[in-house]
C-alpha cells in the first residue's frame, strides 16, 4: 500500500514535469519541468531497489545534465522574439499524440506480457554493482570512458569560436 502511494506520487511528478516540459513556451520553465521529471526518476530507481542507480541519477542527471542545460539556456538568453514562433503548437501536439498512441500501446502490451511479478531479491547496492562492473562489464565500462573523453574533446572543438568564423568566410 505504501509502495503504491509512493509510486503514484512519483509518477504524478514525472508525468507533470514532462508535460510541463512539452507545452511551455519559455525554455527555462521547460528545463524546470525536466528537472522535476529527473528527480522523480531517481525516486523510481530507489523504489526499484537500485540504490546506486538512484544516487548516480541524482548526481549525473540532476546535478550535471540539468544544471548544464540551464546554464546554457541562461547563457544564450534568447529573447521573446528569438524564440521559435509556434502559432498552432497545441494542434501539433494533439496530432502527434494521436499518431504516437498506437506505439505507446504496442510498447506497453509487448513489455507487460513478458513478466507479471517481481523476483524477491536483495537490494542492488554499490557493492554488487561494483563487482559486476569490474568483472562482467569491464569492456563496456572502458569503452564508455573513451566515449566520454572523445565527447568532451568534440564538445570543446564544436563550441570554439573560430569554427563558425572560418565556415562563414568559406561560404
Amino acid at each position: 500500500m505504501l509502495e503504491i502511494s509512493i509510486f503514484s506520487i512519483l509518477a504524478l511528478f514525472m508525468l507533470g514535469g514532462s508535460i510541463a516540459m512539452l507545452v511551455n513556451k519559455q525554455t527555462l520553465f521547460s528545463a524546470f519541468g525536466f528537472l522535476v521529471a529527473m528527480i522523480g526518476l531517481a525516486g523510481m530507481f530507489a523504489l526499484l531497489d537500485s540504490r546506486f542507480l538512484a544516487l548516480a541519477q541524482i548526481m549525473v542527471s540532476v546535478g550535471a545534465v540539468v544544471v548544464l542545460s540551464m546554464l546554457t539556456i541562461l547563457t544564450i538568453n534568447a529573447k521573446e522574439e528569438n524564440l521559435p514562433h509556434e502559432p498552432n503548437k497545441y494542434k501539433w501536439i494533439a496530432f502527434a499524440s494521436l499518431l504516437v498512441l498506437p506505439i505507446t500501446l504496442l510498447i506497453y502490451k509487448s513489455t507487460s506480457a513478458l513478466y507479471a511479478s517481481f523476483a524477491t531479491m536483495q537490494t542492488i547496492n554499490s557493492k554488487v554493482v561494483g563487482k559486476l562492473l569490474f568483472s562482467e562489464w569491464v569492456l563496456p565500462f572502458e569503452i564508455v570512458s573513451i566515449l566520454l573523453l572523445s565527447a568532451m574533446v568534440g564538445a570543446i572543438v564544436i563550441a570554439r569560436k573560430d569554427v563558425v568564423q572560418t565556415q562563414g568566410e568559406e561560404s
Binding site: 514525472m14 508525468l15 514532462s18 508535460i19 516540459m21 512539452l22 525554455t27 521547460s30 528545463a31 521529471a37 542545460s69 546554457t72 539556456i73 524564440l83 521559435p84 509556434e86 503548437k89 501539433w92 501536439i93 496530432f95 502527434a96 499524440s97 499518431l99 504516437v100 498512441l101 506505439i103 505507446t104 510498447i107
Partner: peptide, 17 residues
C-alpha cells in the same frame, strides 16, 4: 514517458525542448 518524448520531438520546434 517514451511517448511524451516522441511527441515533443515531433511537435515542437525549440531546440532545447
Amino acid at each position: 514517458l517514451f511517448s511524451i518524448g516522441l511527441v515533443g520531438l515531433v511537435a515542437r520546434r525549440n531546440l532545447f525542448v
